[in-house]
Computed example of a mutant assay.
Amino acid sequence: MEDLFRNFWWLLFPLAAFAFGGWDRWLAYRRSREELELIKTYATQGKDVPPELLKRFQEEEDDDEESDWSGLGRRRARNRHRRYSQRDDLRTVIFTGALSGAFFIAAQTSIIPGTEGPFRLVALILICISGATLLSVLVSSRFRDK
Rank of each mutant, 00 (worst) to 15 (best):
L36E: 06
A16G: 05
L38Y: 01
Y29E: 10
G21K: 05
L36R: 11
E59I: 10
F8W: 14
N7G: 03
G71W: 01
F13A: 14
W10S: 02
K40G: 04
L72Y: 15
Q45M: 07
T41W: 15
N79D: 06
I94P: 02
G46V: 03
A16F: 09
A28R: 13
E35I: 06
E52C: 04
D24E: 11
D63V: 02
E66H: 15
T96Y: 00
E59H: 09
F18C: 10
R91G: 07
E60N: 15
A43L: 14
A77L: 15
P14D: 08
W10L: 03
T41H: 14
A19D: 05
L15K: 08
D24P: 00
L27D: 07
F95P: 00
T41Y: 12
G73F: 01
E61C: 04
K40Y: 08
S67V: 11
L12I: 15
G73T: 02
N79T: 03
H81E: 09
Q58F: 08
D63N: 13
A28W: 09
S70L: 04
Q86H: 15
L90A: 08
E60Q: 15
W26H: 09
W69Q: 02
D24T: 12
I94G: 05
L11R: 14
W69V: 08
F95T: 01
R78W: 09
R80I: 02
A19S: 10
N7Y: 13
D64V: 14
